[in-house]
Every structure is written in C-alpha cells, then in structure tokens.
Design a binder for these strands. Structure first.
Length: 590
RNA sequence: GCGCCCGUAGCUCAGCUGGAUAGAGCGCCGCCCUCCGGAGGCGGAGGUCAGAGGUUCGAAUCCUCUCGGGCGCACCA
C-alpha cells in the first residue's frame, strides 16, 4: 500500500515538472508513512513540505497542486491537506477489510516476506565459555539472538545459527584443573582448593562422575600435586592467585600426561557443553552449528596460523619484547594488540581473528555477533583485524546486549559468578517459565539495561504483559469453543461476504493493527529489534480486549457473526505468529 | 584520563531512523458483569523529553558542550 501511494505521488510530481511548475532537480526524500492518529487518515506524505523550499511555494499550496495531479486509485477514498502541509490519504474500507482474507490465506506465514531474497546470514550468539552452566546474563543473549535469527528468517534470509565454543585456552585449563582437584578430593586426598578455581557445585558433580567412570587412574598424592607452587592469594593480600593456578595447571599436565590431561579436560568440557545444549534447547533455542575454537588449529589446516601469516605478509605484524603484535591502531583501535605471547602461545584474540576470517570465507552476506555489552571494547580490534586481512568489514554487525538485573520483592537479586552464587538460566526458567523468560528478555531494547522483575513475570494478572497477550489468544479460542457449544460453526464464505459489516471503530482499529504486522516484522528484523514485536503484540492484544468488552461476537445475524469471527480469528493468527517469533507459546486455554 | 551505552510521567519503558496536541503499563482516583473466561474494559490526574547552544519549514529524535548513571580500557578468555 505504501509503495502504491508512493508511486501515485511520484506520478503527480513528475506531472508538475512537465508543466514546468517544479524544477527538475530536487532529489528529495519523499516518505509515505502510516499516521499515528486516525484523524489524520491512514497514510501521510511529507512531499509538499520537503519540496516547498525548492518550489518556492507554501507547503500547503504545493500540497494542493500535488493532490490535483494525483492519479485516481481504487484503494484511496479521500485525500486532503492537513497541518503544516501533510497530504493525508484515506484508504477504502474494502482495502482495509481485505487484510482478514490475506491473513486467512497466509496463515502462519502471515507477516513473513521474501525481502531477504534467500541471502545467507550468520547469527552467532551466547557462545559462553563452557566453564559452567549458563546464567541469567547469557539468557538474554540467547533469547535476543534467537529472536533476531527468527526474525531474519521470517523476512526471507537463510539464517545460520552458530555457537562458538571456547574449548581451548586458559579458562578451560582452569576448569580442567578444578575438576581434577575435586576428583582428588573424591579420591580422599586432602586438597586445599585454589582461590581462582571454579568453585561451583557442578564441578564437584563432574568430578564424582569422573571417579565413577575412570576409577583411581588419575589419582595422585596431594603433596605431589600441591607442593612447590608460588603462593596462592592470601586473606592478607599477599600471594598471587593467577600465578598459583597457572602453576597448578602445568603440574596437572605434567602428572597426568598429555592423554590423561586431555581426558579430564574433555570430560568436563563435554558434560558442561551437553548441559548448555540441553538448557538452550529447553529454552527453545537451537543451533545449526557448535563451532569449536579448537578446530581452528587442529585438523588439516591451522586457521590461526593462516590468519597470522596473512596479517604478517600484509605487513601488519611486528615483534616487541618477545611477543608478536598486530598493528590494530592503524585501523582505528586505540592500541596495538598481542597475538602471540612471548611464551609462544597465541592469544584468544588471535583465535578470534581466525574465526572471523573463516566466517567471512564461508560466504555470508552478513555476519552478526551478539555479545554482552561488557565486550564492547573488543569490537574495534576485531574490525581492525578484518580490515587488515583485506576483508569486507561492513559485513560484520556486532549487536550488544546489556545486562539483565533480577529483582525479587523489589530487591535486587545479588549475582556473582566467581563465588558460585549466581542464578542460572535454568533456575530462572524453572521459576518463571520459558514463555515469561523469553518474553521479558526481549521486551526491552537490547542496549537498554533490563530490570527483570521475577514477581511480575510470575504473576497471572493484567500487570504481566505476557499473560495479557496470551490471554487474548486464549480468549479467541474460548469464543470458538463457545460457538461450538451453541451448536454453531464458523462459515468463512459467509464471513468474507460480510466484511463490510466490520465498521465499528474498534474493528477498524484492529484491522489497521493487523495490516501493520508485516511492516513491524520487517522493521524488527532489519533493525534487530525484537522488542518492537513485543510492543506491537501488547498493543494489538489491548485492541482485541477492548473489542471483546464492547461487542458480542456470537450474535444472531449469521453474516455479522461470521465477519466478526473472521476478524478475531485473524487476531488469533497474528498473535500466534508474533509470539512464535519471540519463542513464546500461544496457548488455547490458560 | 580515553572510549562505548544510557538520562522521556512517582516507577518500568515505547516513540516507527526529523513530522502534526510527546505515548503505554504499573501505581493513584472514579466508573463498567441478567452478556462469548473480570487473567478484561472505559475515563481522570500526572511531563521544561537531564541542561545549554546549533542545524531547518519542523528536533525527544541529528551535531557540539556541560552535568548525572552504567560498562569497558591485559602478553585473561
């Protein structure tokens, strides 16, 4: 419809030019938008105002001139000048009501489009280190990333969902060491646990399972394991927890041997990864690929080495104090970054360069990374690396997700990862349910801090937006059940022949809302803003509830009854489609 | 100190990439069930869009500065 009107306007403008009433140039941005207020018609354009200066005429006069030259259209019932010079268009009732038919025909595909033309897009999200269960912060990334991916798929992109598994690196070594030390405790050794180890109970669970599976084969005497290290951090502030844990790790590697260490390491990794995978799946979040960091260096080709070689041959690497540095400052980063440490180990950043290089090699039209906002400082260096490699940086979009803060009884719920007292995603899901969790996570703009009110999410009342929307859906279902109980049935043919009966104000408002849905989905997808869907659904549910209170659907007149039922069935369809894009269920009854 | 995000109703937030009198929800006040689920609806009060400049027909929206919050600035991941 917008495009249709846009065409009409351009025709009129062209006519004005032909008549010499308008200069040739004037490359202006003509917009056709939905009006916010129905007293302004259905659509409005700003042509007259943006061209007024050029035409040296008053906006309102120019608007009149445009209107006079507007080709006639069967879908437009009225055109008028308003306000400072807007041209308002009124759509015919026929066009307005036809949305009901479109929705019935498209069903669960209503709102979808082919705008993306099947182009490949990759969305990488969550990608939390497999050093422990997901917590509520990861949950927001999961809900947001999944919604962004689903939205892009809905508008016609081919979406590849990926989780980057950091199955290498120091954090994982710390996990392996933590598991092993707990294992030794299970074996009866007296082990003082390192301050910097992973202290969560899950580590002990993993250790017990290791004992069950492997028996005593990894057992070593506590003295051999813990003696001769630098001092661990002490309550008085002395000691160095980092140096201590690193030393413990190398002792573990030495005592267990390559194979033994790898077995312990992978035992922990696999169990945690399985847990994460299951957690996400239960949350309705699935992936096409779990991409292993380790696979970048293992196997036939070493991607990290390739990336570094490419940077080096492009002259962007230099040596300083025994380490290899990437000149990222030449590409907008605030300073240069180490890619190979003086001990010969490549850094996490080096892996990330290789990973992003590899992503682009795979031929995606767009590569989207969803990161926690605390990683924002990392963006310039990754982009710098891609640029230095000669890749097209503009293909990479990094979306940041701010933290979610939980509130219970008006009080902030304390969260601290290291102390082991964090709230896991699973705990949250169990407490408020998947639907409320998915919805609350995306109901705010992603770059906005999220106050997650646990009491509200659980409450079954009008205060809770998720119940409000789901209730609207269930209410439609309930009406249909009621219809059946009265021995009546819905007749679509009759309904479609009587759509002109949908002339009540609240019916018109609903029709407009339903017609807007595809535009909302498109905007939400392109801007990566699932919260737009959440707000739209709330608004549409409200229009439905208003309708419900004002009018009876199951009325005597068959045609009117069917027309109204057609409308509320369309509402039901749109609510279900919208909720599904957010990963939320649309219950038939509650 | 430098960089990123954010300051809109008492509270939590929208504001469609510059448009018409700034919108919701909660809370507060007052109404609405002989009727399809009251887990609902309607109305009211409540705002100097943090502040100051600028850009233009027009600014909550874009630019600059100031003030106030959050986060990040490792040879850690």
């Amino acid at each position: 419809m917008k495009d249709h009107l846009h065409g009409l306007i351009l025709d009129a403008v062209a006519q004005l030019r032909k008549e010499g009433l308008l200069a040739e140039e004037a490359d202006v941005d003509v917009k056709v938008e939905r009006t916010r207020d129905s007293s302004h018609g259905d659509f409005a354009t700003n042509v007259a105002m943006v061209m007024a200066k050029h035409a040296r005429r008053k906006p309102r006069d120019l608007a009149e001139m445009v209107i006079e030259r507007l080709p006639s259209s069967a879908s437009v019932s009225k055109v008028e000048v308003a306000g400072p010079g807007f041209i308002n268009f009124y759509i015919t009732d026929d066009v307005l009501q036809s949305v009901v038919k479109r929705i019935a025909a498209a069903g669960e595909r209503y709102g979808h489009s082919t705008m993306g033309e099947g182009k490949l897009v990759q969305v990488e999200f969550v990608s939390a280190n497999p050093t422990g269960p997901l917590h509520v912060g990861h949950g927001r990334g999961a809900a947001y990333g999944a919604a962004v991916a689903d939205l892009l798929a809905a508008v016609g992109y081919r979406v590849h969902r990926e989780y980057y598994v950091n199955d290498a690196g120091r954090q994982m070594d710390i996990l392996a060491a933590s598991v092993w030390l707990r294992y030794l405790q299970v074996c009866g050794e007296e082990i003082v646990f390192p301050t910097n180890g992973y202290k969560g109970d899950y580590v002990s669970d993993i250790a017990r399972l290791l004992k069950e599976r492997e028996g005593d084969r990894f057992k070593q005497a506590a003295d051999d394991v813990l003696s001769g290290h630098p001092l661990d951090a002490q309550p008085d502030g002395s000691g160095d927890k980092e140096a201590y844990i690193d030393s413990v790790i190398s002792r573990a590697k030495q005592l267990l041997g390559v194979d033994g260490y790898r077995t312990v390491f992978d035992h922990g990794l696999d169990l945690i990864l399985d847990d994460i995978r299951q957690d996400l799946q239960e949350f309705g979040v699935t992936y096409d690929d779990w991409y292993s960091e380790r696979s970048l260096t293992e196997g036939s080709s070493d991607k990290v080495q390739q990336a570094l070689d490419r940077l080096e041959s492009n002259g962007h690497i230099y040596l300083k104090e025994g380490a290899k540095w990437f000149k990222s400052s030449e590409f907008g980063d605030e300073k240069d970054r180490v890619v190979v440490r003086d001990n010969g180990q490549t850094t996490y950043f080096a892996s990330d360069i290789a990973y992003h290089m590899e992503k682009l090699e795979r031929g995606y039209e767009r590569v989207i990374d969803v990161w926690g906002a605390d990683h924002h400082g990392y963006i310039p260096r990754v982009k710098a690396a891609l640029q230095a490699l000669g890749d097209d940086v503009s293909k990479l979009d990094v979306l940041l997700v701010q933290f979610a803060i939980l509130y219970r009884g008006g009080e902030r719920v304390p969260m601290s990862t290291r102390s082991g007292s964090f709230v896991t995603l699973r705990e949250l899901r169990n407490e408020v349910g998947n639907d409320a969790a998915r919805f609350f996570y995306v109901m705010r703009k992603s770059e906005q801090h999220l106050d997650f009110d646990l009491d509200l999410a659980k409450s079954k009342s009008n205060e809770n937006p998720i119940y409000y929307i789901q209730y609207a859906h269930a209410r439609v279902c309930s009406v249909m059940r009621q219809l059946e109980e009265k021995g009546l049935s819905y007749d679509q043919k009759s309904a479609f022949s009587g759509l002109e009966l949908l002339s009540e104000e609240c019916e018109q408002a609903l029709l407009v809302a339903l017609a807007k849905f595809p535009e909302i989905v498109e905007a939400a997808a392109l801007n990566h803003e699932p919260h737009q869907i959440a707000h739209y659904l709330r608004d549409t549910a409200n229009k439905f509830h208003t309708y419900y209170n004002a009018h009876q659907f199951i009325v005597e007149s068959g045609t009117r009854r069917n027309a109204r039922l057609a409308l509320i069935l369309a509402v039901k369809q749109v609510l279900a489609n919208g909720l599904r894009l957010l990963g939320v269920s649309a219950p038939e009854s509650m």
